[in-house]
Design a protein around this nucleic acid. Structure first.
Lengths: 232, 232
DNA sequence: CAGTAATGAAACAAATACTAATCATTGATG
DNA sequence: CATCAATGATTAGTATTTGTTTCATTACTG
């Protein structure tokens, strides 16, 4: 499992990312201050560092420079910089200092994951993590981005697929609608709409799972949804 | 047998590579200094040059530039750069100067061999391994750089060809546009445009694959593209 | 069992992604 | 330097997905 170190003073963002990255088989560690960051850096030896530019004590550029200076140990460590401004200069400066990529806030979690994968693939070509999950006749091949139900390929949209792999990552966990929306869309927890219900409904249909006694997605009344089943 | 010239002052690495490359039917020659390198360059006329960036006398970038300047003789000579840092800038500078690929140290020997094969395949017509792939009626002869669709030769541009063999290398893998761009251009090219879409569109037309139910290149909505089919 | 809240799903609307045509740029060639 | 081919960028038009609204249905409550 890939270890990701996040140095960012935004606690909430850290938590969110931790949860989100978990779904993609990555373990995130959050350091709220640079000093704490350096500490964790040595301790967990992450595969990738996500670095906010705006930080207390010293800024992300400074940290980036320091890390690159100690090239013997962390010279290879891929770094992804986050910043509040979409300015070009930041980007160039960051890249000059040895960051591997750059992402302006606010960003879509999905976008972040895509970039992480990119960086990790570039820096070490061992990304062929073809983990095929099979739960109760439902099979997900993440490399092909393909889902098979009883050996028949399903045609899922992006959201449906995302929802499904989220469910399958935590079988038998009951998600509230808020939780699902947060993990799928990222930030805005406020949800007046029934978007999740609709999404679940659509997925259920494609999974042929509309009976009273659902095979996969169970409704937990007044609470949310649960994907039932044990992984084979 | 392919001749590989390595210019690197790390004697031990040179030896190691020499031994390793031998296994893959390549003969390596090591020059510890640039001057010695130029000497050997003329003498053995290698099929590929592996160039360390950190060298005594002058650095790898300088050498790369010099060689590219003498375009008449060594203009075509494929160059693979090695460097100690994984920074993007190095990569960009290297590629701008005309290097064909770039590999940050430390690297896996296997990785190096893979890249060498890649470069040789790209840059010369007579590569070591003539692998003819045939997927679903589409036949690629990488030696001749020729593609046949149902026994009829197609006239593809460089990019179209590169895209096709990338697809065929990983049938059924879903590539995102970023991924495709990265692999095709070698560097992490930002994607402001629909360049990939355009390229895919052009390739599809040449493959006669524009129907709703594509024979080869499937659009994965919200994600990217997949080349479908099992290799025969 | 009536009343109320929560849910499912259809229909519509809005947002988003894709294709392909066209134009612009680059780069090679003579 | 002119020409042509290849490739990149732009964009209009279209298709698809996703969010919202609505209403019937279901589950809970007293």
């Amino acid at each position: 499992m890939k270890q990701i170190l996040i140095i960012d003073d935004d606690e909430k963002l850290g938590e969110l990312l931790t949860q989100y990255l978990e779904r993609y088989d990555m373990q995130a560690h959050v350091a709220l201050t640079p000093s704490k960051g350096f500490e964790l850096l040595k301790k967990i030896k992450p595969d990738l560092l996500i670095l906010d530019v705006m930080l207390p004590e010293k800024d992300g550029f400074e940290i980036c420079r320091e890390i690159r200076a100690k090239s013997s140990i962390f010279g290879q460590l891929p770094i992804l910089m986050l910043t509040a401004h979409a300015g070009v200069t930041d980007r160039i400066v960051g890249l000059e200092l040895g960051a591997d990529d750059y992402l302006p806030k606010p960003f879509e979690p999905r976008e972040l994951v895509a970039r992480i994968h990119n960086i990790l693939r570039r820096s070490s070509d061992d990304n062929c993590l073809r983990d095929i999950k099979n739960i109760n006749g439902l099979e997900v091949d993440s490399l092909r981005r393909e889902v098979k139900l009883d050996s028949e390929v399903l045609d899922l949209t992006t959201m449906e697929y995302e929802l499904l792999i989220l469910f399958m990552q935590f079988p038998n966990k009951t998600f509230t609608r808020d939780e699902l929306m947060n993990r799928l869309r990222g930030i805005d927890a406020e949800l007046f709409s029934r978007a999740v219900d609709t999404l679940v409904s659509r997925l259920r249909h494609k999974l042929n799972d509309t009976s009273k006694t659902p095979r996969f997605i169970k409704t937990v009344w007044g609470r949310g949804y649960t994907f039932v089943g044990e992984q084979i």
